[in-house]
Design a protein around this nucleic acid. Structure first.
Length: 335
DNA sequence: AATACTGTCAACCGCCCCTAA
DNA sequence: CTTAGGGGCGGTTGACAGTAT
């Protein structure tokens, strides 16, 4: 028979996460590593569904996440990747380190769609961007969110297609914006980006200021407004550009991280602990983390693989970042 | 100043695939 | 082989913030 039931839906809390809940979740993952989400509510006492915990972690708390302020480069990549992959945000996110699928999806829906429409209107032409376009016309959503496995058959092929297509998109996007283009270390896709300290930033000082702002009881079931209300201290602004109050309340978890770091060997999110996350990842066995982490492999690896597959020649690898689709030889390789 | 409208985004929902039992 | 839960994904919603009237 199957497994025991997931999460009893009775008494499961919904709505915005409180700082307290976040801290509980983060500290639990700190110790046990991500994964086995079903156990998280039970072991932490969080009255949250396991899915909710996973989502909160992967989309918000996970170190290495960059939020807001999409660069032009990122925009272009998203546009191109969306045109090629369709609304498969997880696949797209796997090519944008530091960005979550949810973030990209939101950004697409709120900014890029309009932008493209505008551009289309101006040019009187259709761009390659087609909403909802999916080359494979498939409703599945698993492809690039999984490790590639030579024996996986169907979706392994699809993954290859994805990578091929994404590669094209990348080349195209990169070629558009050469001046900006350096061999950006970000594009080498670290397991977690340097924004591990982003969380620390978000949480910085929260612990200190918390006593002043009575919402500490919010874990007992605040009104939907409470997360914001609880955070209206005039603390320094973070790099996050929206919902500042919301984010302010997290200032200070950096110190929590530090504390936790001394407790366990793994170290998430110490303001300077850029690589520390990887340690945490290695130590925590249930690796499957989130959409953007499970498949994160350095582009160089991807490229290697592609080269082995003969998708792209080594000659072009050298100039990958410089090549343009205007170059007939490159186009020939790609299309 | 008050109200209406619009934009943003965190979180939820429901579906699908994989896999443990 | 069958069943059902876990996890991942894309779509959608609703609350809040900002802007316009």
């Amino acid at each position: 028979m199957g497994r025991p039931p997931c999460c009893d839906k009775i008494g499961v809390k919904k709505g915005p996460w409180t700082p307290e809940e976040d801290i509980i979740l983060v500290s639990y993952i700190q110790e046990h590593g991500p994964g086995n989400w079903r156990a998280v509510p039970t072991n932490t006492g969080l009255r949250r569904c396991s899915k909710s915990c996973r989502l909160r972690w992967t989309n918000y708390l996970r170190p290495g996440i960059k939020r807001g302020n999409f660069t032009e480069q990122e925009e272009k990549m998203i546009i191109h990747l969306q045109a090629l992959l369709g609304n498969r945000w997880a696949a797209i996110a796997s090519y944008l380190p530091q960005r979550t699928d949810n973030d990209i999806k939101n950004y697409w829906n709120t900014h890029l769609k309009k932008k493209l429409k505008k551009i289309e209107g101006q040019n009187g032409q259709t761009t390659h961007s087609q909403e909802g376009f999916s080359p494979n016309n498939s409703s599945t959503s698993t492809s690039s969110s999984h490790h590639h496995n030579p024996n996986k058959g169907q979706w392994e092929r699809r993954l290859q297609t994805d990578i091929h297509l994404a590669k094209q998109a990348l080349c195209e996007a990169l070629s558009i914006d050469k001046p900006d283009l350096k061999p950006d270390p970000k594009l080498t896709r670290p397991a977690y980006a340097s924004s591990a300290d982003n969380i620390a930033k978000l949480l910085e000082n929260w612990a200190i200021q918390k006593p002043n702002s009575g919402p500490s009881s919010s874990s007992t079931g605040p009104s939907p407004k409470s997360p914001q209300e609880s955070t209206t201290q005039n603390s320094s602004t973070t790099t996050i550009h929206t919902n500042k109050n919301k984010y302010d309340c997290y200032q200070g978890l950096g110190s929590l991280f530090s504390t936790l770091n001394t407790k366990s060997n793994s170290s998430i999110g110490t303001a300077s602990g850029e690589n520390s996350i990887e340690v945490a990842q290695e130590e925590s066995k249930p690796i499957p983390v989130g959409p953007t982490t499970t498949t994160e492999m350095p582009l160089s690896l991807l490229e290697k693989w592609l080269f082995e597959e003969g998708v792209i020649s080594h000659d072009h690898h050298v100039n990958l970042l410089d090549m343009s689709l205007d170059d007939p030889s490159v186009s020939a390789q790609l299309f």
